[in-house]
């Protein structure tokens, strides 16, 4: 359950899991601490969109065709 905190911070849980995780968060000090620790990460990732050649057009190396 604790591992859901990263997905929660990034906003990639579906609606049902999101509600479930928030209930967990209410009583879990560990996840509360990690939420604070990770909260700024998405903004850092958003900075990638400001790179001159946005990586969005070319598929990542990991993607097989």
């Amino acid at each position: 359950m604790h591992e859901g905190v990263a997905a929660y911070v990034l906003g990639v849980l579906d609606e049902e899991e999101l509600e479930e995780f928030e209930r967990h968060l209410d009583t879990c000090a560990r996840c509360q601490a990690e939420l604070q620790d990770m909260a700024e990460i998405p903004s850092r990732l958003d900075e990638l969109k400001h790179l001159p050649s946005a990586a969005e057009d070319d598929p990542p190396m990991s993607m097989s065709r």
Binding site: H2, E3, A6, M38
Partner: peptide
Amino acid sequence: VKSRLYYGIRALRVLLRDKGVAG
């Protein structure tokens, strides 16, 4: 996916902190 994301984000957080990007 959820588990890898967790450890991946933690690792990223450490890397960015070392580089002084994430407070």
